[in-house]
Write a protein that binds this DNA or RNA. Structure first.
Lengths: 222, 222
DNA sequence: GTCTATACGCAGATAGAC
DNA sequence: GTCTATCTGCGTATAGAC
């Protein structure tokens, strides 16, 4: 076959199909041959639209990052803590909907378009709330650390189903909370506890405008 | 050649050489053929000591986790905050010494021997300090989220060197702190700020034995 | 039980015809 | 822009020497 009148492929269609394959059968199942079969074309045709496999996976990750809700950063932001809390939950939820893609976060977190869009929105919100630019940058980074680390720790495979394997070997851990059935609640609880603790600890680094009651909405100190 | 008088290979030697290859040339450079060449044997010989490549990478990760300092959890622990702070820094430092292995953390975080040893030590410290078992489990998990997320976000490649690429495209971010040369300080600062904020936020969830001064060393509330 | 030699079936990627 | 044909290198299964 030669060149078709209308293109059979597009980058968007390839990325969308790749995401569907990853969601269905995992990252390992994503190959040029599988993808080509899924799209009804031959393998090398893909290279007219994506440069490498790594490029493609990056684009899939970026698509998912595009699903993170940023509407809470629409100015003016009433309370930076509330905005950050809602954003962090939305971020985690977007990753939870595509758990198979999470291991791909491990390569190059910084240079995808939607990564920058997210970083920009968080940074702007914090600066508007009165945080100095240096602190705003750090807070954006550390929140990302926590959310992505949470996704990685939660959606990767946890303890084996049979906790009795560890009986007696680790003095403190041979308990019910090792069981896989409890893992989801633990992950959820750990995320929420960490999120609230982070926000509390950051808020304590703000100056209070009028007495102790203003702590939660105070002006950043540095 | 047949069976040698003394074994040429051992699992430990294979794992150590694999770590050296990863440190030198990255995870992608680790292949059975490369590894066999380094060790002076033929490829399939490795399979007498490791079952799969995934098994081998897991063992390499476990070796690095074994370098995390746990001595601050030796009972009795004076202050759970101090212990957790020192442990988190040691954990991050161990990963920082082998940045190329960090992407491998993305697979199966929970079932390596040294993962369990670490989880057990943290859990024991927190329970000894008075935290209820459920909260201790959550805190151990969320601290791990933050430290591993920090390693992932820091040691993976950051923004491109030329910040002018983004000039005008992201309203808040076209600033000096986008430059790669500042990335290391940002990562370090974000880690420290997040760590202190987390510990402060958790400490605020304890009851104070004698007035407000006991906040840092208070007894956990739940 | 530990090694070597060989080989299979995948992978990502390229060259050149239409 | 898509095809066919083909390249290299991967993990690893198998068979056999000692």
């Amino acid at each position: 076959m030669g060149r078709p009148r209308r293109p059979l492929l597009s980058r968007d269609r390839i990325v969308a199909t790749a995401l569907a394959v990853v969601d269905a059968d995992g990252l390992d199942a994503l190959s040029t041959r599988r993808l080509a079969a899924e799209l009804g074309v031959s393998g090398p045709s893909l290279y007219n639209h994506v440069s490498t496999m790594e490029d493609l996976v990056d684009a899939v990750v970026d698509t998912i990052l595009g699903e993170v809700d940023l509407s809470m950063f629409a100015t003016p932001v009433a309370d930076w803590r509330t905005a950050l809390r809602e954003w962090a939950r939305s971020y985690r939820a977007a990753l939870a909907e595509h758990p198979n893609i999470v291991p791909a976060l491990a390569h190059g977190m910084g240079h995808r378009p939607n990564s920058l869009k997210i970083a920009d929105a968080v940074f702007g919100c914090l600066v508007d709330a009165g945080w100095p630019r240096g602190q705003a940058t750090r807070i954006g980074a550390l929140m990302r650390y926590f959310v992505t680390g949470s996704a990685l720790g939660s959606f990767a495979r946890g303890f084996p189903d049979d906790a009795s394997v560890y009986a007696g070997r680790y003095p403190h851990l041979s308990e019910a909370h090792l069981l896989a059935e409890h893992q989801r609640e633990i992950d959820e609880g750990a995320f929420e506890l960490g999120l609230e603790s982070l926000l509390d600890g950051l808020a304590a680094r703000t100056v209070t405008a009028r007495g102790a009651s203003g702590r939660a909405g105070g002006t950043p100190r540095w």
